[in-house]
Nucleic acid binder design. Sequence first.
DNA 1: GAGTTTGAAACT
DNA 2: CAGTTTCAAACTC
Length: 642
Amino acid sequence: MEKSEGGESSEASVSAAVDTASQHVAVDFPAKKLARQLDFTVFGGQSPAAVTAVTEQIQPLAMTSGPQIVPVKLTPLPRPQLQPQQHMVLMPMKQTAAPPTHPSIRPPFHLVQFASIFWLMCEAIHDVRDDIHVPLLATLKPESPRARPRQSASELKDGTPKKQKQCNCKHSRCLKLYCECFASGIYCDGCNCNNCHNNVENEPARREAVEATLERNPHAFRPKIASSPHGARDNTEETGDGLVLAKHNKGCHCKKSGCLKKYCECFQANILCSENCKCMDCKNFEGSEERQALFHGDHANNMAYLQQAANAAITGAIGSSGYGSPPVNKKRKGQELFFGLANKDPVHRQGQLQQGNHMKSSVLPSLSSIPGPCVGNAATVGPSKFTYRSLLADLIQPQDLKELCSVLVVYSGEAAKMLADEKDASQKQAEGQTEASLASSTQERVNPKDSGTEKDMLDCSSSGDQGEKICVEESSLDGADVSKRRPMSPGTLALMCDESDTMFAASVASPNDLATLSCNTSSQLPHGQGMTETYAEQERIVLTKFRDCLNRLITLGEIKETKCSKMARGADSIDQKDMIGNGFTTTETRNQHDSFNNGVSKSALPQPRTTQLFSAVVATANNNALPKVHRPDENGDVNPKI
DNA sequence: GAGTTTGAAACT
DNA sequence: CAGTTTCAAACTC
């Protein structure tokens, strides 16, 4: 996706942008990204249908959804992550294994989808990960294989995944699992193989080979690295060593490599050996001195290794769960810290002792339940075991997304409130003195404290036809407090519906109120076109703010990209202060996150550029008022006046 | 780049 | 299922 063009109508551009994003989700983006970004189900049952369902769920927002609210709970995805492709070539029949969570319903815009799409868009901005394997796509569109088995370290010299690695098969005709291309479900393309049959011209033979392979092993094309049986994507979070907490489905059988060379599939995938492994003399366990020595060793070599690790992390041949191990120094601080060596050591010592039985099953389940990156131990100070990550990866944290959504909910609520007030005012004017009693009763619903602000907002409002705004018939809402509430769009209510915590309740309503709102959503719906206008306005606002955030994100990403490029060129001359000023450093990134999380209190302080990503939105939300400043944004677009 | 090592896949 | 062979990637020189 590209930056939106300046000067566009904000409403149109936002709608178009989101619409486009949705389309990308469904069509344009490589399937690999879909699988990775929009996987809301647990391991073992991904289906294209599920992705489609998600895509469909997005549409209502872009198109101003109708008034249907279905409080669907999907597994929250704090940070959309790489998920192994479950099935591939010639296995479409098995892809239907996992039906959508709620196949018969089409819930409106959902917070989780919002966050996921947000991430999708963030990554699409830079198109940074085009090398996640996509066997499914290769199956569906064999003429355009896009998946990537893995990349060599040399292909990652600049830290950016490059094109597909070529296999060098000589005797397998590229029709055996020996061939990485074949194993990844893609055609050979530009490979150095001999007598290759893994191509369109030999599709019959290829198909036959696939069938034969599946006959031998129905799971042959499944990724070798998987989340835990629990299906929690948490399991792919990294440990303090930047190690991904996934495990090899079959386990390795290494004998001589100590599982510390890339011969070892676990090591190559940047994961620890698990109870599935039958390796000998395994040193690939948490706390292993050899392993740590490897990570803490010579830095120059380390970088090469780290890039190999990145390579492994995104390798399609092995699986994709390895993705997403950030540098340790970028560990999120508020999360988890569950994994310490204290917990792990015994387990891995056991692994060291041996093989075939290490890491008993009691361990991984616990790992899988850990929601987030884990800090290892003091020893984790060093191991900057980088895997490939988006330049934007640390700019936005899961919590940010959550808060952003919350803020947008607040915006939406405020918009509805404002519109209702508008209606109040116009009604009052129209009905005149004879209708005074009715008008006053309506006005009583408005918090006097807010009147001034709302008046200002009205003055700034760009929604022209105020006369058509209608007053909300709050009588449809139950409960004593309901009378003070303003309508929220289906999308907003859906957001709130899924937001079980009370994170933003203080700004909008009490938890109970939220529940009431949610439960009465349907009863709000038949209020006529005035309500539709309100919904439209709410969604316009939400989308506009979301677009603003994305625009900032684009800018930040470009800045980081520029800096990274300079560094990659050995530009030691990069001005450290400049980097800091642009939020390039880890510290600043961290600060940004803190600032965002802490809301207005910090956003009011001088901030590095990155901290401004969402701060305006957050600050406004915390003030429980909509922004009044009407100014062009960074790319020339005009922000809504609200 | 050639040769060796390694472990997964394939085969028996 | 275990042992052996084949294979290609990883590694070494």
